[in-house]
Amino acid sequence: MITRRKMLMLTGAAALAWDSVLAGTPENAPNYRMTDHWWGMLIDITKCIGCGNCVRACAKENNVPEGFFRTWVERYEVPDWEIQDPRVDSPNGGKDGFPPSKSGTTVKSFFVPKLCNHCADSPCVQVCPVGATFVSPDGVVLVDEKYCLGCRYCIQACPYGCRFLHPERETAQKCTLCYHRITKGLTTACCEECPTGARQLADLKNPADPIHEFLRTHSVQILKPQMATGSKGFYYGLDGSVR
């Protein structure tokens, strides 16, 4: 039997399909215009299983150096009413998954995926002395690798610990929201590999994006709202103990 796959291989259509992905899948991103988008992410705590797929996917997609993280997963354990005293761990950023917890089900326990919140009023952008990090017209906080001094002021200024200095390139690095993917109509690597849909890339300027329906009908929270950073990382099911 000749499957569709074999036929595509024979005709060379497979390669063609991939070319269209590289160039921007025509139906999703005909001509990507920055001003038409305003990117963020929705994270559903109630769906995260702490498998670490996102961390591994990110590391492979973006060549993240060992020991540093553009995204990571934390495990929270909150004993009863002690909401101010959570126990948190994130062994190797959750990259290798999580060992069974010692407390088991005697405490409230859940996973929290973290990544850059792509803040609209980002403190990291504010403090960069030379303009090497910025909010792009489509709302993604990026670093200019060719312009960054490596002064690390932005790393100090990020309230969420999302930035690090690349040990070899000696420039600040962070989550780009897979800018090289989302501008081609693909989703981020972490969303692509997330098996439960705990992460959803969201285009806040696109009225057809399901994020709008979700935000209308659910209680969502951002991390450290007191920092007033204009965070676009929206969390559903976030516990008050998370910081």
Partner: peptide, 26 residues
């Protein structure tokens, strides 16, 4: 206040994950 070409630099990075739509094509 930044180098606009930096956006192009980031956008031009290599895609590593094909995405399920590419897989499903074959």
């Amino acid at each position: 206040h930044y180098r606009a070409d930096a956006i192009k630099d980031v956008a031009a990075l290599q895609v590593v994950h094909a995405g399920h739509e590419a897989c499903e094509g074959c």
